[in-house]
Design a protein around this nucleic acid. Structure first.
Lengths: 153, 153
DNA sequence: CGTGAAATTGTCGAGCC
DNA sequence: GGCTCGACAATTTCACG
């Protein structure tokens, strides 16, 4: 899929991962090319799904989302129906920014973003009342040291 | 800071968190307003830092970044110098997409994105050779159930 | 890949509610 | 103060050499 990517494509993506606001002409200049080829490449990468989407990143602190939890979940249930209910619950809750199914001891990890600890508790109570969960550990973030959506191209 | 935000601002942000590609006119229509007010509000929210940045989200799988680890770190060192070295190491490594300092038992959690398990090991060896770390647990993601950068506005 | 032209969009000012 | 309208500038988009 991504085999037909050369150094120029890579440079373009490095830029777009950081900032999509500059014009194509500016991007072209900064990667040492010109308008048309850059535009064609961006279009192709969008079509191929290499560029999944373009979004605005908001400041959580400014907007009052001051609490971020990593939630480690162990479950005893592993049948398909339980899993479907659980996954749907995660997808339906906007507080859940990330959810991963894991290999090993712990079954799932979530990243949950809420205004405060009380809001987390509300979320947590709602979740465990919806689906049966064996064991939960919540890790509270004190400080976001680094946060990027960029892949290490 | 964000107190001067009304329902219209919220609707605009909900849109931009999902997709920044539509024109201001389209966004205006979808939130039931018109070009100028929407444009003015977006500008203000950028200036106030509510909108931190606008970026392209790439597809990790398509690009061959098929391994994602959550790394739980305990340390014995807590002095300022150690911490500075550690934080700088995290910021310098592009594989580290997120890094949080935690409250409690575990001191830090990282989200690390790499092409494969071998690349993770390389990263891990490099990190522990740079800074002294007491205890590390790596959780390997088998499946990304959900992934969004959107705040639950 | 470069040129250039058409369509669309971003940007902003003047007057109105 | 924010909104509508309208105009101009900049950019995106695309055809052709």
């Amino acid at each position: 899929m991504a085999d037909r990517m050369d150094e120029l494509d890579r440079k373009i993506l490095l830029q777009l991962q950081q900032d999509t606001t500059p014009s194509i002409e500016e991007i072209a200049r900064s990667v040492g090319s010109s308008k048309t080829p850059v535009w064609n490449r961006i279009r192709k990468m969008r079509d191929r799904g290499i560029i999944k989407r373009e979004v605005a990143i908001l400041d959580a602190d400014v907007l009052g989302f001051e609490a971020c939890f990593f939630v480690l979940i162990r479950t005893s249930e592993h049948d398909a129906e339980w899993q479907n209910t659980f996954l749907q619950a995660l997808r339906d809750r906007a507080e859940v920014q990330e959810a991963h199914r894991l290999a090993g001891d712990i079954d799932y990890v979530l990243k949950v973003r809420v205004p405060n600890a009380r809001a987390y508790d509300t979320f947590y109570q709602a979740l465990i009342s919806e689906v049966k969960i064996h064991n939960v550990t919540a890790l509270l973030s004190m400080e976001e040291i680094k946060s990027t959506t960029a892949l290490p191209l």
